[in-house]
């Protein structure tokens, strides 16, 4: 004798259940999902770019600081020790932002050509 636990699907029960649970507006649902997936893909792309941007900004800041220290060291008198604070103070961005007497095209040019 076949066990009642092993019987196949009951077509009549299945039909009634499908009818009672039938979702409306299939096409609209699929369209909404496609838009959500596209939005998700865009968001992911921006997340990746944002992920790259943070270390990029940190690296640029580190390079600028190193450059500023190198410039300050090359301008300092023989034997003088240049600190990070000196380097930041005398760096081109600081001069330009502070609008001090040294600011202007001379400072930018000096930063570009160094002591040549």
């Amino acid at each position: 004798m076949t066990s009642p636990f092993n019987s196949g699907p009951d077509e009549a029960v299945g039909r009634l259940l499908r009818d009672a649970l039938e979702p409306a507006h299939h096409a609209a649902f699929v369209t909404r999902m496609a838009a959500a997936v596209r939005a998700e893909a865009r968001e992911t792309t921006w997340d990746i770019l944002a992920g790259w941007a943070r270390p990029g900004v940190a690296a640029a800041a580190a390079i600028a600081l190193t450059l500023a220290m190198w410039l300050a060291q090359s301008r300092a008198p023989e034997g003088a020790v240049v600190t990070i604070a000196d380097a930041v103070e005398s760096s081109v961005p600081t001069l330009l932002l502070s609008g001090g007497a040294d600011a202007g095209t001379d400072a930018v040019l000096a930063a570009m050509v160094g002591d040549r």
Partner: peptide, 26 residues
């Protein structure tokens, strides 16, 4: 995304019905 859309088109009716059986609300 188009391939995923085809999967959604194919399986959305069944997963929507099952979710409705669970939650009782369309």
């Amino acid at each position: 995304g188009g391939a995923f859309g085809a999967l959604v088109d194919r399986h959305a009716p069944a997963v929507r019905r099952a979710a409705r059986a669970l939650l009782g609300n369309e």
